[in-house]
Structures are given as C-alpha cells and as structure tokens.
C-alpha cells in the first residue's frame, strides 16, 4: 500500500466515524455561528465599519470552532486505547499525523463552507472579488491552522488538562496564519487588485510548507509511550 493510500484510509476512518454521529461537526458549526452572533452585540453590526473587519470576524469564529475539532482529534483515540492500535498498525507514524490532518482539514472546511454564507447574510455583507481566490484563502489558511493544530493536539492529548492547554499553546504559534488569513480575506472580499494582497498568499503558503515539514520530522517524538 502506498503512503498516500494509508494516509487516505486513516483520514477516511475519521470521516466515517464522524458522519455516523455528526457530533463534532455540528458542535463546531453551531459554535462558529454563536461567535459571530456574539460579535454582533460587541459592536453595532449595521455600521459601515463592519465591511473592513468582516475578514477578521469570520476567522476568529473559524479558528475558535477549529479548536473544538482539534481537541477531539486525538482525545477520541484515547478511548479504548485506540491510539496504541493505530501505532501498532503497519504504517509509518507520520501517516497517522497526515491522516488526522486531512480529517480535521475536511471537517473545518465543511464548517466554513456552511457558515460563511450565513455570516454574509446576517451581516448584510456584499463580498466582491473572485470566489476562486476566496476558496484558495480558506483552504490555505485552514491547512496552516490544522497542520500545526493537529501536531499540538497530539501533544496535549497526552497531558492533564489537555483541552485547556491546546488553545493556549496553539494561538501564539499560529499568529502568522491569523494575520495572513485576515489580510488575504480582506483583500479578496474587498475586491482589491491581486497585487495588493498576494504577499499574504505567499505568507500562508510558506507557513503551511514549514509547519507541515517540522511536524513531519518531530511527530515521532510525540507518539513514543
């Protein structure tokens, strides 16, 4: 079996388990919507300034919702010692990392694709710009978030107070993704020319590459028992 196929099977396992209950996806989705609704009370949602901060709002909601998914990704495997089963299966340990990454990436993207139109409607926002670019931003930024998030979730799953620890150690590390995602989204939805925000695509791409490579090298150290 090729490496890619193993990764795909591991991700598929998570997706199938999730689609039987839809427990996590529905919690993430509702939480993302709630964050946006809470924001509406933090300032006047009908003001014009909303246009300039919309990109920031949606990413705060997505990243907060993403934390819920990440917290479960390895914690679930601790039930019945399933993680040991995974580690004993004849795959490279990095395949477990990439499988988990793909699964969480899929969950988050599904949540984002459903939630984004709702956000646009309830804030009366009129995005301009290319939808293709918007999708690219969403995929790239979410990948960066889950790449490092999956890695750190594997770390915190083995500690006491894991659910509290993950956001505290993850958010300082993903500051570049936050900046890149917010600025690129602002550029795309604001209908600015591509030259104005292409830097942020590069930042996201470079960050993704680095923070897939580093966990790939170090993941082995998190799984040793």
């Amino acid at each position: 079996m090729s490496f890619l196929r193993k990764v795909g099977l591991l991700a598929w396992k998570d997706l199938r388990a999730e689609f039987r209950t839809k427990e996590m996806i529905s919690a993430m989705l509702i939480f993302a919507l709630l964050v946006i609704v809470i924001f509406a009370f933090a300032f006047d949602p009908s003001r014009d300034e909303v246009r300039s901060i919309f990109g920031g709002l949606i990413w705060v909601a997505f990243f907060f919702a993403g934390i819920l998914g990440l917290n479960r990704s390895f914690a679930n495997e601790r039930l019945n010692d399933a993680l040991h089963g995974l580690m004993l299966s004849p795959v490279d340990h990095s395949a477990i990392y990439f499988g988990k990454l793909l699964g969480t990436w899929a969950f988050m993207t599904i949540v984002e694709v459903i939630a984004l139109p709702v956000f646009i409607v309830i804030y009366n926002y009129a995005p301009s710009g290319s939808w293709l670019l918007a999708i690219a931003v969403i995929l790239l930024a979410t990948l960066g978030f889950v790449a490092i998030g999956t890695f750190l979730a594997a770390l915190t799953a083995n500690t006491k107070a894991s659910e509290v620890l993950l956001p505290v150690i993850l958010f300082p590390i993903i500051i570049p993704v936050v900046i890149g995602a917010v600025e690129a989204t602002r550029g795309v939805f604001g209908g600015l020319p591509l030259d104005d925000f292409v830097t942020w695509f590069k930042v996201l791409a470079v960050y993704d590459a680095i923070f897939i490579a580093v966990p790939f090298l170090l993941f082995e150290y998190l799984l040793e028992v």
């Binding site: 490092i148 890695f151 750190l152 770390l155 083995n158 500690t159 150690i169 300082p172 590390i173 570049p176 470079v206 960050y207 680095i210 580093v214 170090l218 150290y221 998190l222």
Partner: peptide, 15 residues
C-alpha cells in the same frame, strides 16, 4: 514534549 515545543516555538519567532 517540552523539547519538541522548544524547537517549534523558536522556528516560529522569525515567521
């Protein structure tokens, strides 16, 4: 775990 995070954090700073 601390060593892994110590490496990760330091790489993150310039970015």
């Amino acid at each position: 775990f601390a060593a892994v995070f110590g490496i990760l954090g330091f790489i993150d700073v310039p970015i």
